[in-house]
Amino acid sequence: MILTTLEGVPGKEIIEHFGLVQGSTIRAKHIGKDIMAGFKNIIGGELKGYTELLQEARQEAVERMVRQAAQLGANAVVNVRFATSSVAQGAAELFAYGTAVRVK
């Protein structure tokens, strides 16, 4: 499966469109990480635990999107976009969407 943020796949031609595919996941932080992050919030810097958590979650959102595209019979997803939003205190939604296409 080829993923791009472009309107097509370089070096290939789009032969069929399958429409929008999307994947999302909502993750909550676990309390141990929250305590560490609370401490980090005093001295500043990167919250490594959260970065990893969100990267994992984004990976899963992408996998779900890819699975949906594969079910439709696509071999590429073009114009992929990501979004993150905080849905409640301590939980974030990771969202990925794009257009499933078949390229040759």
């Binding site: 080829i2 993923l3 791009t4 943020t5 472009l6 796949v9 370089p10 070096g11 992050a37 980090k40 919030n41 005093i42 001295i43 500043g44 810097g45 990167e46 919250l47 959260y50 970065t51 969100l54 990267q55 984004r58 992929v80 990501f82």
Partner: peptide
């Protein structure tokens, strides 16, 4: 993009916090 043959998606992310 005529010069390209292969393409792949790359994502970089970071979570930052402010200090007190």
């Amino acid at each position: 993009i005529p010069e390209a043959e292969v393409a792949a998606l790359f994502v970089g992310s970071v979570v930052i916090s402010a200090d007190y």
